[in-house]
Nucleic acid binder design. Sequence first.
DNA 1: CAGTGGTCTAGACCACATG
DNA 2: ATGTGGTCTAGACCACTGG
Lengths: 258, 258
Amino acid sequence: MNRSVRSQPARQGDVSGFDGLVFRPRSDTPIWQQIYDYILSLIDSGWLQPGSQLPGEVHLAEKLGVTRITLRRALQQLQQEGHLTSRKGVGVFVRALPSALVVRDGSRFAESLRADGKSVTTRTTFLEAEFADAAAAEHLRLPPGAPVIRLRRVRAADGQPIHISTKVFPAALLPDFETVYSRRQSVTDVFIAHGIQKYRRLETRISGGFATPDEASLLALTPGTPVFRTSSINTDANGNRLEWGLGCWLLTSVDFVF
Amino acid sequence: MNRSVRSQPARQGDVSGFDGLVFRPRSDTPIWQQIYDYILSLIDSGWLQPGSQLPGEVHLAEKLGVTRITLRRALQQLQQEGHLTSRKGVGVFVRALPSALVVRDGSRFAESLRADGKSVTTRTTFLEAEFADAAAAEHLRLPPGAPVIRLRRVRAADGQPIHISTKVFPAALLPDFETVYSRRQSVTDVFIAHGIQKYRRLETRISGGFATPDEASLLALTPGTPVFRTSSINTDANGNRLEWGLGCWLLTSVDFVF
DNA sequence: CAGTGGTCTAGACCACATG
DNA sequence: ATGTGGTCTAGACCACTGG
């Protein structure tokens, strides 16, 4: 019996590793939970590697000797916890859960991941000059319609995205934002280029919510998965508001430390 | 048509308010989501008051013209978000979502709720002298087995529990804990009684998770509902560790501000 | 005891993505 | 064209709770 469910882009034939299971109906724990435990153990033990595809629900349900609905109950739980993702018309995939430490102002986020030996990548998905909407104006203490820069990025650890950030900057204070950022891909470098060596975290807010379809797609999650939402404001040494940031984090992957 | 679904311990006859609905199958939004939106609007608008019971799933599904499974898909979503709770063998109930602001060290938690005109109640579920386990010893910098006080409380706003806290104190530094606390029900008063006027938050950690059955029962939630978990350490002015606290909060009801 | 929610089955059609 | 996950139906039995 070949149990390899790793390696390769994963084919539909890779149903091995799911054979010979016996689920006791009407025991103390429901069948779907037994399946949940089983699949989770396959992930934890490495039988199912991050990125690999599960067999189709119909095949798998048959293999496990249960209805598709019962199987889906288990898969759903695993998705809510971030262990699996499903893409309609494609399949169900294993999703790694790198655990990150976010210290205080979030600046050490990447460092704490790298300290764990993880490779951190940052992808800029949006960078444009705009005019401040009501929320941005309010948070940056600007008149509505003032020119701002809007930046969206996705951060990933070992290829698994775990953080979306949307930041808004007052264009008046950072006239060269776009040119410097496009060259360095670093906000800190933009600040330095404008003579801002130190900035201060004025406020951080953390709340909870559920991933919108957009967020879910960027984070490789199923919509409705619970997430952290953060909102923060940075000022320069004189108290001028430099940055308003919104963050969306995978709930089960982050630890905020203050 | 009488729409009262408030008042009284709620009977099964209170199905009114759910009549005459038309759900379009195969529209852009699935039926279960239309039902979700509908019930949510009933809660938001006040047709369904906190604490009131929904009609039985069988009745309701029939009334809405859908299968019980489809209805349950909607109810399940509402439960995950904390709007509803179900008790096996009893029924489904509306659960209010008071939104609380937790500022910095969490001490202003009750105040911010009261400022919203909410009544805050604290229930002590556990208070005992013990010997420190490994975790407690580690966090309080005590030798394993040192005497400690363990305190568990549930905080509720307008009768809806939104916070569980478990705190551990070094008994050596607070010899009169139990007598003072049982008289005043306040940790701050215990500190004062021992001559500690000021204490400092050394560290706060915030992470996410899913309610265990125990937590779910205390918070009037469905097990598996996403929650915040906090861990914090307080010291006195000299840096001696006075308190290690674990918190469990309803995800959708709290905003942490730092 | 009757009513409730929790679980489970055996089908079916659809929208979607891929080759 | 095929296989995928998303949705939905019409039943059923169970364990639990309360009167």
